[in-house]
Nucleic acid binder design. Structure first.
Length: 580
RNA sequence: GGUCUGGUGGUGUAGGGGUUAACAUGCCGCUCUGUCACAGCGGAGAUCGCGAGUUCAAAUCUCGUCCAGACCGCCA
């Protein structure tokens, strides 16, 4: 198809040009013998005007017809300053209708009133909306910026396989049956973790990949079954050097995409500090509402609930919701209580500070002295609302208040738009204890290196062991993370043992990996960045679905293709699979 | 697996025991030479997600079921 220009291109300096354009009919305005058509393509909208001689044909146009026109660029009698091409229009001399279109189920415009459901079913029409195309283009530019950055630093893009061995640590694997080896399965990678480490053993030194990863877990607005990671691994670099590398990448990205200069180095918080101040290992640091430890003052109250909790090594923390005493009625506070209960808190105690005195659910337990102490420790003043959660498990206190923080920030509009607050969370625990299974699991993954100080003791004192692991957090979302890896074979074996694996299990699952470590493994480490989340945050979208071309719905299926679907028995027979 | 919310013309909503099922937009037709959310007039389009039940009567109440979304569990 010959086109001389695209639909976002023509300006008043083109007046008099003979042009040919193609695109979709976005809108027709029929004034009788005069017909206007907005012609849309990827690049924008150009107004076409049809005179009497083409009136019949132009009148037959419907929305979303694909057409080609030839004509002359003329100055508009009345200009539209909302449109880049609004000074001109095309006086059409020739109109070809290339294809017709039925009425679309959703309106093809930036603003659609269609619900998620309908948009997903007709995703190809949803993606025809300029705003969705813009999202995909920005995503492309993000990838381009990252590739440019890494290419400039000598990184090599290597593809790793999608059909791999299942290693059932962490999330559930997607399994793919093998036809040739009946009864055996490949797994889709949750990340290219072992392969990128093998590439370091191979001596590539600097690897990256825009890698598709798969996890068979339930979806959320910020979680998909398949997602894309910027996967990076390096040899011979320290933790600080890797963090600098990632910071440089993100700094360039923010400049390239948002034209924002972010300051490096980013803030750093230890895991401990993040949890105690924000109740989260991915805190949103764009606003205050920090958690305050109030064990001391609360222990002085004649309040049995708190006394019981403290007597049994529990925790009490509070948040000062500044200036909001007047804005939260009993009912409003009930709403907050329901919210923390969803996160397993048993309740929400509260007091309002009014004229230096306390009012509210636990006010009667305070003396003048303890009131002053509380006001002091919470940095409270008149008009503040103080809320508290107590529990035997500190984790529940932190988690519920951490979530309440985010909830309050939204409810009270505390977040300044277009702010990007990057932060590293470091010094993660190496292990996580599972109460039900009564054993330790790797918090990150089993290849994560303990910090040097804990190399001797991580397996004898797993509770205290700290990992050389780091997460980068943006606005309350975990963008990515990484670690230094274990590069000594015997250390890796000790790690597997600490995770409760027998020699046989190690052999079966990680034999090839352990073997590789024997032949000169360099110190290495890296990180991975969730590309979809980066795109979501930079585009300020509430869901990953807005930045993935063909995402899955929350029900783990695709409303458009209706995948997953049943397969016929011949296919199953070939695979040796019988359904129950 | 669990909790909550929702499902009504193509799309988005209102209605919550008796209605001609309302509104907006979209769609179709007619009129119109300066529109750009064109305007004016006319019109078509809904077995109210599905299945049972209660009732003289169900979009409306009850139960079940399916679908969608948010959240919890799960998940880096």
């Amino acid at each position: 198809m010959n086109r001389s220009h695209n639909n976002g291109q023509l300006r008043s300096e083109n007046i008099g040009n003979k042009v040919s354009l193609v695109g979709w009919v976005a809108k027709k305005r029929n004034l009788g013998s005069l017909v206007f058509v907005d012609l849309r393509d990827r690049y924008g909208i150009t107004q076409l005007v049809f005179g009497e001689e083409l009136n019949d044909l132009a009148s037959s146009l419907r929305n979303e017809y694909v057409i080609a026109v030839e004509g002359e660029v003329i100055e508009r009698e009345s200009k539209n300053k909302n449109l880049p091409t609004g000074d001109i229009e095309i006086k059409v001399a020739k109109l070809d209708i290339i294809n017709t279109a039925e009425t679309t189920p959703i309106i093809i415009a930036d603003e659609t009133d269609a619900l998620e459901d309908t948009r997903m079913k007709y995703r190809y029409l949803d993606l025809r909306r300029p705003t969705m195309q813009q999202n995909l283009i920005v995503r492309h530019n993000i990838v381009k910026s990252i590739r440019n950055y890494l290419d400039g630093l000598d990184f090599v893009d290597v593809e790793t396989p999608c059909l791999i061995k299942s290693t059932p640590e962490g999330a559930r694997d997607f399994l793919v049956p093998s036809r040739v080896h009946q009864g055996e399965f490949f797994a889709l990678p949750q990340s290219p973790q072992m392969y990128k480490q093998l590439l370091m053993i191979a001596g590539l030194e600097r690897y990256y990949q825009i890698a598709r990863c798969f996890r068979d877990e339930d979806l959320r607005a910020d979680r998909q079954l398949e997602f894309t990671q910027v996967d990076v691994e390096t040899s011979f670099l320290s933790q600080d050097q890797i963090i600098e590398l990632a910071e440089g990448m993100l700094k360039k990205l923010m400049k390239d995409i948002k034209n924002i200069d972010v300051k490096i180095p980013f803030k750093r918080l230890s895991y401990q500090e993040a949890m105690s101040r924000y109740g989260s290992d991915k805190p949103d640091t764009r606003f205050g509402l920090e958690l305050v430890d109030v064990n001391n003052v609360m222990s002085k109250l004649e309040f049995t609930v708190f006394q019981d909790v403290l007597a049994n090594n529990g925790a009490i923390k509070g948040i000062n919701i500044e200036g909001q005493a007047g804005n939260y009625s009993r009912k409003g506070i009930d709403g907050l209580t329901d919210f923390v209960k969803k996160h397993h808190a048993k309740g929400l105690a509260w007091v309002k500070v009014i004229n230096g005195c306390l009012e509210g659910s636990i006010a009667k337990f305070f003396t003048e002295e303890t009131t002053n102490e509380l006001v002091d420790v919470m940095s409270a003043k008149d008009g503040d609302l103080l809320v508290f959660v107590s529990d035997l498990e500190e984790e529940i206190v932190c988690d519920s208040l951490g979530n309440l923080r985010n909830h309050l920030a939204k409810e009270l509009n505390l977040i300044e738009p277009n702010t990007f607050d990057f932060l590293w969370v470091v010094d993660f625990p190496l292990f996580e204890y599972d109460k039900e299974l009564d054993r330790y699991f790797a918090k990150h993954h089993p290849f994560t290196r303990p910090i040097d100080a804990h190399l001797d003791t991580f397996d004898t004192n797993p509770k205290e062991a700290i990992a050389a692991a780091y997460d980068v957090v943006l606005n309350g979302f975990e963008l990515g993370g990484g670690s230094l890896r274990i590069y000594e074979g015997d250390l890796q074996k000790r790690m597997f043992k600490a995770l409760g694996m027998s020699n046989e299990q190690i052999r079966n699952q990680f034999g090839f990996f352990v073997d590789a470590f024997k032949y000169g493994t360099p110190p290495h480490g890296g990180f991975a960045l969730g590309l979809d989340r980066v795109a979501m945050l930079l585009l300020d979208k509430p869901s990953l679905r807005d930045v993935i071309a063909f995402p899955k719905a929350a029900s783990s299926s695709d409303p458009m293709s209706e995948a997953p679907g049943a397969v016929d028995t011949a296919q199953l027979d070939e695979l040796g699979i019988k359904l129950k």
